[in-house]
Structures are given as C-alpha cells and as structure tokens.
Simulated assay, not measured.
Amino acid sequence: MKRTHLPLNGLRVLDAAARHLSFTRAADELAVTPAAVGQQIRALEDTLGTVLFRRTTRGLELTPEAEAGLDALRHGFLCFEDAVRAMQAGQSSKVLTIAAPRDLTARWLSSRLGDLAKQDPELRFHLIAADEAIDFTEANLDLAIRLMVDKGELEGVSVGSASFLKVASPSGEADRWIAWPGHAAPEPILRVADAGLAIEAAAAGLGRALVPELLARGDVEAGRLRILGDPVDQGLRYWLIAPTPQWRQAKVKRLVEHLSA
C-alpha cells in the first residue's frame, strides 16, 4: 500500500483497541464513542481485506493477522512521536536569527534585545546586516526588519511611527542636505550609506538630514540633534516580517510582541 493511502486514523484506533482489548476503553483513550471505534475498525478491515478482532465468550480477541502487524505498527507510531519531537525542538530553541539594517540594529534593536535577554538569560541572537531583500530559506532567518512601504506578501507588523524628522546639529550647518538611500536629497553636501550615518553627519554639524523618527528620537532627546520644522511622511516605515511558518513559532511571536510593544 502506498504511503499516501495509509489509513492512519484506523491504525491509530487499532493500536488503542489492541492494547485495551476493549472498544469502550479505546474510545475513552481516543475521546470518541465506542460506536466510532467499531466503525473505524470495520472500515480498516474492509481496507486491509482481513479480520482484525473476534468476539468470544472471554471478550475481544485479536486475530493472528492483527497480531502479525502490531509490533511494526507500534514501532511506526514511536517513530512518528520521535519525528514530532524533533520538529517541535525548534519551538523550544533559544536562538533567534534576525536580519536588520545596521543603523537600526545600533540605534534601536540592540537595546531592545538586551531588555529581552534580561527576561530570559538563555536567549541567544544571531544578527545579520541586511538592507536589501533577503531570502529567508538561504539565511535560515526567523525574522527580518525592513524599511518599506508595507509588509508585502509576508506576515508582519510595523514598529515605531511613519514620521521622518528633519534634523541638524543644535549649533551647526543646517542649509545643506545630507543624502542617504532613504532620502535622495537635492544637491547634497554629503552622501552616506544609511540613516545612521546621516544622523552622525548631521550631529557633527555637516548639514541637515531627513531620517526616520525611530532612529533619531534618542539623539534629539539627548540634545545631539534639533528638529527643523514638522515631521514628514515619506510613505516608509520599519516592518517586522517573516513567512508564515517562521511567524507562527512561539519564539518569534514573543520577539515580535516585545519589539512592537
């Protein structure tokens, strides 16, 4: 019989009924009715073309045909249990692999992972620097954080606000722009690789930069930067994203709840 045609429900009922030699006790174990057990056994007998149980004056007895397959059946179920435990082992893993932009990791993510690690000292993090699209399969990722318009086809939640702030040094140059890939400023005095470098350049007095509020807020509150004008909506925000299988993992759910709180 092909693997795809195996009557697994019926075999599970057979295992229980054979151990108890009672449809009633098997039904109690399986949380079904004795009639349902009887129906499963009759259906299995029809599928296999053999009788599995006989009723005698002493009660229910296995036929020789049923006894011949029981050891292999029980070994098979033990293998199933081992397989399930192996697949569930990832759920209890304390290692989280996260892809995120370098500037976000330095200015926002690391401190929050530190807070989470204080709650569970067994946690371990593997951080991958990623500003472009990433392959979850190749990188064996649990979660990614991207600056995007929306989450696309993946599961995801946004973190922080969608606001960008125009910032500059409290006393430095503010007439010329500092450009980075998230803001192609006109005729910039300086071009840098990411928002974190743009913030540092602005704080150093080289000009003004338009950067995500999530990254700049700490420097503003610390007095390293001043805000110029009103916040701007660039249509971008940071998203926590993952394919559905990773998103459903208990460890990822906990991480997402912590980061998006």
Rank of each mutant, 00 (worst) to 15 (best):
M1L: 11
T4K: 14
T4Q: 14
H5V: 07
L6Y: 02
L6G: 00
L8T: 08
G10S: 03
R12V: 09
L14S: 02
A16R: 12
S22T: 05
T24F: 07
A27V: 04
E29H: 10
E29V: 08
L30Q: 06
L30H: 04
V32Q: 05
T33F: 07
A36Y: 12
G38A: 08
Q39H: 14
Q39E: 13
R42F: 03
L44M: 07
L44G: 01
G49S: 02
L52H: 00
T56E: 11
R58Q: 15
G59Y: 06
G59L: 01
L60V: 01
L60W: 10
L62F: 01
L62H: 02
T63M: 03
E65L: 05
A66H: 08
G69I: 14
A72K: 11
A72W: 13
A72T: 09
L73N: 02
L73I: 02
L73W: 10
F77L: 11
E81D: 14
A89S: 13
Q91W: 01
S93M: 04
V95T: 15
A100Q: 04
L104A: 02
L104H: 04
T105E: 10
A106N: 11
R107Q: 13
L109Q: 01
L113I: 06
L113C: 08
G114Q: 08
L116Q: 11
E122A: 15
L123G: 12
F125E: 11
A130S: 15
D135L: 01
T137N: 08
A139E: 15
A139M: 10
N140S: 13
L143S: 01
I145Y: 03
L147N: 06
M148A: 14
V149F: 10
K151M: 06
G152I: 05
E153R: 09
L154V: 07
L154R: 11
V157K: 15
V157G: 08
V159C: 02
S163A: 15
S163Y: 07
K166M: 15
G172A: 09
D175M: 10
A179W: 09
P181G: 07
G182K: 11
A185Q: 09
A185D: 10
A185N: 04
P186T: 07
A195I: 12
G196M: 04
E200A: 15
A201E: 06
A203Q: 06
L206F: 14
G207M: 06
R208P: 00
A209L: 08
V211W: 09
E213C: 06
A222Q: 13
P231A: 03
V232R: 05
V232L: 07
D233W: 00
G235M: 10
L236M: 02
W239K: 06
I241D: 00
Q246S: 14
Q249F: 01
Q249I: 01
Q249R: 15
A250N: 03
K251W: 00
K251F: 01
L255V: 02
E257V: 09
L259C: 04
S260Q: 14
